[in-house]
Amino acid sequence: MDPLTILTTMFILMVQEGSILLIATLGEIFTERSGILNLGVEGLMCFGALSSFVVYYLTGNWITATLAAALAGLALSLIHAFVSITLKANQTVSGLAITILGLGLSSFIGRPLALSRVRIEPLESVRIPVLSDLPVIGPSFFNQNPLVYLSYIMVIILWFILYKTGFGLNLRSVGENPSMADSLGINVFLTRYIATSVGGALCGVSGALLILGYYPSWYDGITAGRGWIAVALVIFSSWNPLYAFFGAYFFGLVGTLNATFQSIGFRVIPTDFFRTLPYLLTIVVLVIFSSTRFRKRKMPASLGKPYTREL
C-alpha cells in the first residue's frame, strides 16, 4: 500500500464530503451576515435533496434539478424570513421549526419514492485538463462532478459580493447595525429577505450535490446531520466565505480518518471515536469561538436580533 495512494483516496473523499458542507456553509454565512440566524439548514438541505431527486428523475437534466433544489430551499427559507423578519419572532425557534418541517415534508413527499425504490444515475465526473494530472490534488479537486466545481466558484462569488460590491456592504451593515443602515436609506427588510432566501437556496443546492453526486437514491435520514455541522462551520470560518473553504475541507478530512486508519491498519484509536470526532470538533469549535473577544470581533453584531424600525 503506497502512502501516495492512501493520501489521494483521503483527498477524494474529503472533497466529496467537504463540498456538500461547503455549499451549505456558504449559504448560511450569507444569511447570517445580514443578521438572520437560520438553524433550518438541515431541513433545507433535505428538502433540496428530495426536490432535485424528483426533478432529476423526471427530466434527467441535472441543471433543472439543481435549480429545483435551489427553489425548494428558497421557498422554505422564505417562511423563516417571514416569521423572523416580518413577524419578528424568535429566530432560533423558527429555524428549528424549519428543520423539523423540511425533514418531515421530505419524508412525507418522498415516501412513495422510497417505497418504489426509484433510482437515478449519479452525476458523472468531469476531468479538468492539465490540473487533474497533478498528484493528489488533481484526482481529488479536479476530477469531480460539475456541482463540486460550482462550490469552488461560489466561494469566490460570495466573497466578491460580500466584500467588493455595494450590495455586500449594505448587507453586512444590516447585520452589524440595522438602525444605522436604515437611517442611511438601506432597505433592511428587503436586504434580509434577499440574504435569507439566497442562503436557503444554497442550502438546497447542497442537498442536490449530496443526492445527485454521491447517494443516488432517496431514503429517510439522507442528510444525516450535515446541516448542523454547516451551522458550526459558519462560526469556525468567522463568517468569511474564504475561510469556509478551508473549514469545510478540514471537516471533510476529519470524516475520512476512520476509513483511512483502518486502511493502514492503525488500530490504537477505536472507530467509535472517529464517528464522534466531527461532532466533538463542532463542540470544541463552538466553545473556543464563542469567547467574548472573538464574538465581538467576528460575529455580525445584530445576529439573531429582530429589527424594529423606531419611529
Binding site: M1, T5, I6, T8, T9, I12, L13, Q16, E17, Y214, Y215, G221, I222, A224, G255, T256, N258, A259, T260, Q262, S263, I264, T271, D272, R275
Partner: peptide, 23 residues
C-alpha cells in the same frame, strides 16, 4: 472496514472507496 453503525451511508461510501483504492 468497520462502520460501528447499521445505518451510515457516508461511512459506507468512504469505507468502500478506501477498500477499492487502497487495498
Amino acid at each position: 472496514q468497520w462502520l460501528n453503525a447499521w445505518f451510515d451511508p457516508e461511512g459506507a461510501n468512504k469505507a468502500a472507496t478506501s477498500l477499492v483504492e487502497n487495498n
